[in-house]
Amino acid sequence: MDIINALVAVTNYVIIPATAYGAQLALGALGVTLIYSILRFSNFAHGDTMAFGTGVTILITWGFQAMGISFGPLPTALLALPFGIVITSALMLGTDRVVYRYYRRVRAAPVVMVMVSVGVMFVMNALTRFLIGVDQINFDDGARFIINARQWREMTGLTEPLTLRSTQVITVVTAVIVVAALFWFLGRTRTGKSMRAFSDNEDLALLSGIDPNKVVAVTWIITGALATIAGTLYGLDKSFKAFTYFQLLLPIFASAIVGGIGNPVGAIAGGFVISFSEVGLTYAWKKVVTYLIPNWEPDGLVQLLSTDYKYAVSFTILILVLIFKPTGLFKGKIV
């Protein structure tokens, strides 16, 4: 019985949250990896793009709520999401037109592009703050739980509670749909294949008559969509705060690099590697240990790292991968 309780505790505090978080990181890392493959730079503005997209989605959600529109048991934000995507993608295209296009034409070095993305980061940061401020915002409505602790106890008779929040399920389901759609697009459509060709070998793609402007535009649209979805799911699951999104940059980059930057499958795998390590290492295992080893109560929390150090986990994994396998778990692009 205690073993089952231990399993339930692990599921409740590690597996479920880490899966949802991993899905959010994976979507973020996909955006970073796409920009990296097509435009060939690490986009430092990605965290703030996520914040902007989420901010817009929240505003539209409030608008819907004010009009009395709701999505039944699902969060209203899901209804607002498509509008948020359109606006964010439009902003991406505008930014490309005003900022990035010039540097592509002069064939600027990647590190210059990174610096340019820092400038964009400042502007996006300001836009988000103008739009929605710096405070923490909870915008989740609809049904909160699919399984709550009381139901679970009544259902199973176990002492250990298990809760499954609807946002966690929504995150995973949405992520699966988005990833499936993205892979279908990249693998099956002419435009998607031309993007992969452009990523593989730009010169040959140009020789084959692939229009670089179209490839880049589609990339920004998809990136805007991925960032908005990832940001909104993260915000629904936890809460929205502009600065937190900036800080997500590190685990997102780590996911992309760990998986092999430029490789979409790698980005997804990397997201889960990072999320499970982060949650697993910062979880206080005391309860589980108490279940598993009878008649022994550990003094401390049996927590390997305090949650304040969760970024240290991404960083350490990142460094280990950079040292031992710079191309990442799934072969990424050139090192």
Binding site: S42, A109, P110, V111, L250, F253, A254, S314, L318, L322
Partner: peptide, 10 residues
């Protein structure tokens, strides 16, 4: 070159 940027960010 941009790995240094990401590592230092961390």
């Amino acid at each position: 070159s941009d790995y240094l940027a990401i590592a230092t960010l961390g």
